[in-house]
Structures are given as structure tokens and as C-alpha cells.
Computed example of a mutant assay.
Amino acid sequence: MPLLESVDERLQQAMKWVLLATLPGMLALFWFYGWGVLINLMLAGASALGVEAAVLQLRKRPLKPTLSDCSALVSATLLALALPPYCPWWLTVSAAASAMLFGKHLYGGVGSNPFNPAMLGFALVMVTFPQQMTHWPASHGMDLSGGVQQVFGFGSNPDAWVRATALDSLRINKSLTMDELFSTNPAFGHFGGRGVEWVNLAFLAGGVFLLQRRVFSWHAPVGMLASLFVISLLCWNGTGSDSHGSPLFHLLTGASMLGAFFIVTEPVSGAKSPGAKLLFGVGVGLLTYLIRTWGGYPDGLAFAVLLMNLCVPALERFVAARQKRVAS
């Protein structure tokens, strides 16, 4: 029993560090998009905890040990940060409920899920409600009252309220050069998406903090960012109208840093051994770029993570067999 308590305490402490490390990215998102970010967080958190409590009651499991480990709150937070600010309330609730039901408790709860719960919830609403998932606000947002009206459908959309993201604009671009996109398209900033480049740097700072605290090892984040950089460099065809974007653009656009430090490092659905973690991150980076460039979705991180979740057993066996051959 003391050993189990020790494991639970370590899990709870790690989850608290992760929540703390999301603060820089959370504040950056709030600065650029306003109250919609906090509304998403509250809706996702309440929905995730409510669904988890209901499932535990149905399974006749004690509430306190599971709810207090903060794993549901972490999944809800990461999901809320990935969703578009000011998206309809039912979209956030559906995503959080799906993450808990189909990403976690369907397999027995925390420690048993083969898929990342947050990414499973995100992918399900992306496939089911693609139009709502691509409506990102174009401005710094609105006041709290206007934000609540927007989320709960009490008010109409202001003019030019939403726009395509930088990744989406690049994916459908046929005629403009990269220089023209950066100079004329309001979705583009200095190096990546307007505002999103600073959000990515904020999540990078949070990720470095977690590395310093040894919450996770460097293998999966470095594997993902390195492979995303290399493949975007190899496929980068300059600044012409057929360009897929520079390596810096891909690192500072979309959910790159959130994925590298807060998603691929998920300890249950991800790889366990250092070598498998590295390969897992490499696979996520490669698939993210391929889906962004030639797939049907502007940012393929969620689908890349879920596909690599399926490969974890094979990666572990491959690394173990290779180590065995080297040792012999």
C-alpha cells in the first residue's frame, strides 16, 4: 500500500507541474484571443470532472483518489487550449466528454488508455464538426459578456469575426508567394501564424520548465521537433506560391510546441523506453507535417498522435529487440 500511495502522489505532483507549465501558453492565448480561452477552460474542466465522477459512480469506484490525481483536469486543459476560442459551448462539452468516455474510461480509467484522451476528444469533434473547428477569432476577442453570448449562441457574429488560420491559408494557397502571404494575409505574423508564434514560444517556455523539473525526459519532444524541422527543411521549396512553409514556420505555427511538450509526453498512451519515446516523437513530427501539407486538415497533430499511439507496442518491441542484439 505505501508503494501505491507513493505512485499516486508522484502522479498527482506531475499533473500539478503540467498544469502550472501551461500557464505561459494560457496567458498568451488569453492575450491574443480574450475571454473565449477561459470560457473553454471552464467548460472543458467542468465537463471532464463531471463525466469522470458519473462514470466512477456507475462503476462503484471511489471518487476522491481518481478525481484528486488531476489527470482529468490536465486532459481537459490541454483539450481546451487546442480548441478554437469562442467555439459553441456544446462543442467543448462534447470534446471533453468524449475524451473522458472514449479516451479514458472505456479502457478502464487512468493508466489503461491506449490513446491520448485529449487528442481523441479533439479528433472526434474535428471529424464530426469540421466547420466549427476551423472558426478561429480574428481579433483580440471581446469582453466577458460578449464572449459568453458568443459561446452560448445569444448573439450574432461580428463582421470579420473569424478567419482562416495561417496553416489553412497556406494549404489552400495557389497563387501568392510566401512573402506576399506574410505581407498581406492577416493570419500571418513575423515567422508563423499571427499571435500563434508567440503562443508557441510560451508553450516552449513551459516545456523547458517541465524538462528542468524532470517531469518527463527529452526524447519525445526532441524527436518530434527535430523530425518536424528536418522534413520541413527537406520539403521546403523556397518562397514561391507552391511553398509548403519554412521549418521555422512549422515550428511556430499550429500546436507544434503544445504537442511537443504536453501531448507526446503523455506517460500512459506514449512510449515507455527512451528509444521508443524518441521514435514516437519522430513519428508524430513526420505525420504532423504530412497531414498539414497533403492531408485534409490544416494541423494534423491530433491524428498524428493517435496514429503513433497505435504503434507504441511495435516501437517497444523493436527497441527491445535491437538492444538485445546489441547486447549479444
Rank of each mutant, 00 (worst) to 15 (best):
P2H: 07
P2S: 07
L4E: 10
S6N: 05
V7H: 02
V7M: 03
V7A: 06
D8E: 13
D8M: 13
E9M: 09
R10Q: 13
Q12Y: 03
Q13V: 04
Q13W: 10
A14H: 06
M15T: 05
V18K: 03
V18S: 07
V18T: 05
V18C: 11
A21Y: 10
A21P: 14
T22Y: 06
M26S: 06
L29D: 04
W31C: 12
F32I: 10
G36T: 12
G36V: 11
V37Y: 00
L43A: 09
G45R: 04
A46H: 03
L49M: 10
G50W: 00
E52L: 00
Q57M: 14
L58Q: 06
R61M: 14
L63N: 08
K64Y: 09
K64V: 15
T66D: 12
L67D: 03
A72N: 09
A72I: 13
A76H: 00
L79T: 06
P84T: 08
Y86G: 09
W90N: 00
L91R: 01
T92K: 02
V93H: 01
S98G: 12
A99Y: 06
M100N: 04
M100L: 13
M100E: 09
F102H: 01
G103V: 12
L106K: 01
Y107S: 13
Y107C: 13
G109F: 11
G111F: 12
S112T: 11
S112H: 15
F115W: 05
P117E: 09
M119K: 00
G121A: 12
M126Y: 07
A138G: 13
A138P: 05
L144K: 01
G146C: 11
V148E: 00
G153N: 10
G153L: 13
F154C: 05
G155P: 07
N157V: 15
P158M: 02
A160F: 09
W161D: 05
V162P: 00
T165V: 12
L170C: 02
L176H: 06
T177S: 15
E180P: 08
F182S: 07
G189V: 01
W198I: 14
V199P: 10
N200M: 14
N200R: 12
F203E: 01
A205W: 08
G206E: 13
F209V: 12
L210I: 08
Q212R: 11
S217E: 07
V222S: 02
A226M: 10
V230R: 00
S232F: 10
C235I: 03
N237Q: 15
G238E: 03
S243G: 08
H244E: 07
H244L: 15
S246L: 07
A255N: 10
S256T: 15
I263R: 03
I263P: 12
T265W: 07
E266G: 14
E266N: 08
V268Q: 04
V268L: 05
S269V: 03
A271L: 00
K272I: 14
A276T: 09
V284Q: 03
T288Y: 01
G296I: 11
G300K: 10
L306H: 02
M308W: 08
L310P: 04
V312Y: 00
V312Q: 00
P313F: 01
P313R: 01
L315H: 04
E316C: 11
F318C: 13
A321D: 07
Q323E: 11
K324E: 13
A327K: 09
